[in-house]
Design a protein around this nucleic acid. Sequence first.
DNA 1: AACTTTGTAAACAGTT
DNA 2: CAACTGTTTACAAAGT
Length: 410
Amino acid sequence: MGPIIGMSPDKKTEIPGMQEERTGLRGVCGVGTLPEAECASSPLATSVDRTGGNEDEELTNLNWLHENLLQNFTLGGPEAQPSGSPLFDIEGDYGPNQGPSSSSSSSSHSRGRERDSLKSKPPFSFSLLIYMAIEQSPSKSLPVKEIYGWILEHFPYFSNAPTGWKNSVRHNLSLNKCFRKVERSLGKASGKGSLWCVDPEYRPNLMQALKKQHFPAAHAFCTPPASPPSASSPPRHLFLQGCSFKESDIDAATAMMLLNSAPGHHVDPCNSDSPLDLSRPDSVLVSSDPKQDHNYSSVALQRCSSRSSSSSLSSLDEGGCDRRQSRRAGSEGFHSDEDSDLWDERGVHQTSRRPLTVKWPTSKRARREVKPELDEELKEAAGSLLHLAGIRSYMEGSKRTVKSTKLNRK
DNA sequence: AACTTTGTAAACAGTT
DNA sequence: CAACTGTTTACAAAGT
């Protein structure tokens, strides 16, 4: 995220009453008949204390991850356990009533940092914020207003920011090919605007972007889980490269975010009939080509994105979205070398209102070369989440691999 | 240095 | 009519 200039607290903060029940694993992604988005955000107990503190010094600090996003994830959900579940079991950091790092540092200092972090700008691009918001919604689709709400709820920084960020959100939604507009269901009294969802084809890339934007900061002090989850003692919290997830909060989106982060694994939450199809190791892989660090897209952007010709069409534009043609190619569109492959392998354009079902690119070649350590960590984390989601079979092999890897490390 | 990505601002049209 | 939504253009900053 670039610098935010002129972000003086001023305007109203329109936080709509958007409380939502996190409804677990299934997302409804029927295109064109999307239900009214149940709500973007969970009633998180994000206590916002916006007094004092440095603004941006911890943008990439782990504190931010802990105290803003991750804690929100952890605390989120109506079934969030009030006690007895330390936030960072694995790391042994702190419990919910103790405040961060009570064991190692003074609580006042931690509180101060928390205040700071709450005021800090999230180290996520708007694309990722939107992505997270949408992914955390039960229906995997949200109207912009609820995207606002989710962001506000999880990133209190924006509650004091002028409304320009909303413009940025809309701008991103509109221009970013990762996001697709779907009509609200006709029968329902519709509010303004449409629902927005994540294009499944771009999800892996978004997840990688999230991972890359999210984990590096956490990587400094994170460690892989001490041991793979077992049926006898499943971890109540997962610590994935600095991320703590409470068991009760893990939903399909989260699991799939992580699962998809694992190389070779892609699960599309929108395929509600088979939300976790783990039998497709040949699914979308995300390139780790350094050149693609900022390129989220996976499909058909390459061909359309000559920056000079801002009106060139992407396949999405042509087939899937009611996007206007003249996107600013190269800016919000995300590019990938895989695009042409996927396109060629499919050989067809997605027709209008491409259903949000799994489309398994029949990739023949490995699209990703991953550092073995990261690979194993991701697999392990994904396995943990899936284990908690009641899905275990697939990751057994991964767990074995992890075990052997750890033994080797020792 | 050129290019890309991202954020921001603004204008505008359409919708509610 | 105001507010909201969605699109587009333009520009700047930072990163690659």
